[in-house]
Design a protein around this nucleic acid. Structure first.
Length: 516
DNA sequence: ACGTTGACCT
């Protein structure tokens, strides 16, 4: 089996030279290899398809399946139409329908799905449980739960997958209550059914319910453990994540890459360096390579735990990086205050042919902001859209406003905020307001605080900052006035907190709390 | 020769 595009090219060239390519079976094999290899070679498979004089249904199926699970499932629909119209002597078979229906589901195109359902009935394929299950999933995915239910109730040969196909959509949409009603009603359940229900609760942050389902399960696999652990991790309950991982090991369930990624992000979240190192050592012991997701998670963990050197080490030795891996490294340098290094990694990233995304630019701009790289930040902000086609979002404006504010370029910052899309500008005004405070610019501060309170009278930052500015200028009566307004609206400041790891134990303390 | 339902990183 070919694993790289160059191997595919070699095979293709050989087949053209020997005339093997003219044989439909051989051509199909090559195309299948291209469409299903892990590398992004779907377009290459499409090229082979186009060059084949008389593609058969199998080749159509292979390509439709490839596109159905790609980011552009509409091409699968197009190919299905081409099969119906262009090739009169070819007909879709039962496989074609499962693939094209999958495309309808991911596109939420219920109209097309219904038409294809009609074809299925016309061609006498209504008995096929695979097709019916895909239809069920399609109707549910498009929000047509009544249609799905109607079909499910009338299906003579429904099985556990039929029920799961609908349940999975309830869960995916976060409709946990409906999911649970449906789940309770299911006459047959398998491990997947339980895992769906469990991850439904876990993803909605309903950890007690998730836990209850988990404890009720007679059989659990690594997916079950991962679902629960991920739920705790997403709720920021990192200490419990580490406890659950201990339980998992005691239950002798072997962690997989997903487990380790979640574990590392938990370590990163609480700065648990020792546990993070343990995960890294575990990977080494078990021959698990630090690539892709795991490399990203390790880089992130080491840099959040303060070990930028270790982060660099992992990054440099990762043979397979993706955009997120690069982003994690840039963020790492950024938060450690190494602005120039962050920019250097960015140019390497581009040189290596990676396409930066909006996260990349948040990291870059905040690197500039922290390191005070004013000139560079303007250049990056401008290139972001003109070269890379990424529209600046609130975060990007925020970084720039922050930087301008730090340099005391308050007028410029204000002009930038005025140019922003109106939605969500509150936080940016807050950032600028604190810059005004640092530079003692009372006039602009009052102007901004006024805007802020007008936009959101509940906003505590506006009150707090404005009162601080008055306080710094000795305007005590204004301070008292604002504090009284705050009490009236019951606005209060949430206490700040921090975490630190000492000897492998993570401690949390709140601002104003004693150390001992 | 092909098919239905699964959780993870910035």
């Amino acid at each position: 089996m070919a694993t790289s595009i160059s191997e595919l090219h070699q095979a293709h060239a050989y087949m053209l030279k020997t005339g093997l390519f003219q044989q439909p079976f051989a051509a199909s094999r090559l195309m299948t290899a291209a469409a299903s290899s892990s590398i992004d070679s779907l377009s290459y498979a499409h090229t082979i398809f186009t060059q084949t004089p008389q593609p058969n249904t199998y080749m159509y199926n292979t390509l439709i399946r490839g596109y159905a699970t790609s980011p552009t499932p509409n091409v699968a629909l197009f190919l299905f139409l081409k099969l119906l119209c262009d090739d009169q002597d070819l007909l879709p078979d039962k496989y074609t329908y499962t693939f094209v229906l999958k495309a309808c589901a991911s596109l939420c195109r219920v109209k097309h799905g219904k038409q294809i359902h009609g074809c299925v009935i016309k061609n006498g394929l209504s008995w096929d449980v695979y097709i019916c299950n895909t239809l069920l999933h399609m109707y549910a995915k498009c929000g047509c739960f009544e249609a799905a239910r109607h079909m499910l109730d009338r299906m003579p040969n429904r099985d556990v997958v039929s029920w799961n196909a609908v349940l999975s959509v309830y869960v995916e949409m976060g409709l946990v209550d409906l999911a649970f009603d449906f789940f309770s009603e299911m006459p047959v359940k398998n491990l997947e059914s339980w895992n769906f229900m469990l991850s439904g609760y876990a993803n909605s942050g309903l950890l007690d319910e998730a836990r209850r389902v988990f404890d009720e399960m007679s059989v659990k696999d690594v997916v079950s453990w991962n679902a629960l652990i991920t739920g705790y991790a997403n709720s920021g309950r990192y200490n419990e994540v580490l406890e659950l991982f201990d339980d998992m090991q005691r239950a002798r369930v072997k962690p997989d890459n997903h487990t380790l990624v979640t574990l590392l992000s938990a370590c990163a979240g609480i700065g648990a360096l020792e546990q993070g190192k343990w995960v890294h050592a575990y990977m080494d012991r078990n021959g698990i390579e630090a690539n892709g997701f795991l490399a990203t998670a390790l880089v992130d963990m080491y840099s959040k735990c303060g070990c930028i050197e270790k982060a660099v080490e992992v990054f440099d030795s990762a043979s397979r990086k993706d955009v997120s891996t690069w982003n994690a490294m840039i963020t790492g340098f950024s938060v450690h205050g190494f602005g120039e290094q962050a920019l250097k990694v960015f140019s390497e990233m581009v040189e290596n042919g990676f396409k930066p995304n909006d996260v990349t630019f948040v990291s870059l701009l905040s690197a500039c902001s922290r390191a005070g790289l004013l000139f560079e930040s303007h250049e990056i902000f401008d290139n972001m859209f003109s070269i890379y086609g990424i529209k600046p979002k609130i975060e990007h404006y925020g970084c720039l406003v922050d930087l301008l504010g730090r340099f005391g370029l308050l007028k410029e910052a204000e002009e930038l905020v005025e140019k922003m899309p109106q939605k969500d500008v509150l936080i940016i005004w807050e950032s600028l307001l604190s810059a005004c405070r640092n530079h003692g610019n009372v006039e602009l501060a009052e102007h901004i605080a006024g805007k802020l309170l007008e936009l959101n009278p509940q906003d505590n930052a506006g009150y707090v900052q404005l009162s601080n500015i008055h306080a710094s200028k000795g305007r005590w009566s204004d301070v008292v006035d604002i504090r009284r307004k705050m009490r009236e609206k019951l606005v209060s400041k949430k206490p700040g907190g921090s975490v630190i790891e000492v000897n492998g134990v993570v401690h949390e303390f709140l601002a104003g709390e004693g150390m001992i």
